[in-house]
């Protein structure tokens, strides 16, 4: 039971993150989407560790998740700094208003 709910939550978080990154126009919301995506991925590691050993005893996913959280922190730090620069330069956070930003 706990296994399915962990896996399901991680898939849902990844889906929500992808949806936010691809549809939202506000840069702040895109950064939040990135963070939700990262959380889903980390939860997936924990779930996989649980599946393999039937408990939280395998050190590999734990070590990976701790490192991945640090890396996400750096990524979001850079993203927020860029968001600040964008706001100061363009006085908007709407990605559609930026000239070259077409994806």
């Amino acid at each position: 039971m706990i296994m399915e709910s962990l896996l399901f939550t991680s898939v849902a978080l990844v889906a929500i993150g992808l949806y936010m990154v691809s549809t939202k126009k506000n840069l702040m919301k895109i950064v939040i989407g990135l963070e939700i995506l990262a959380t889903g991925v980390n939860l997936s590691f924990i779930a996989m560790g649980y599946i393999r050993t039937g408990g939280l005893t395998d050190p590999l996913p734990q070590a990976i998740v701790v490192t991945a959280i640090v890396l996400d922190g750096v990524l979001v730090g850079v993203a927020l700094a860029l968001t600040l620069v964008v706001f100061r330069r363009f006085k908007t956070l709407d990605v559609d208003k930026l000239r070259n930003l077409r994806w």
Binding site: V21, L34, V41
Partner: peptide, 22 residues
């Protein structure tokens, strides 16, 4: 900004793939 968002999502999807491989 464009590079960060696209490449950041890609790195995270790669990590998701790595978790499945694990």
């Amino acid at each position: 900004v464009k590079y960060l968002v696209m490449s950041g999502v890609a790195s995270l999807l790669m990590l998701y793939g790595i978790s499945i491989i694990y």
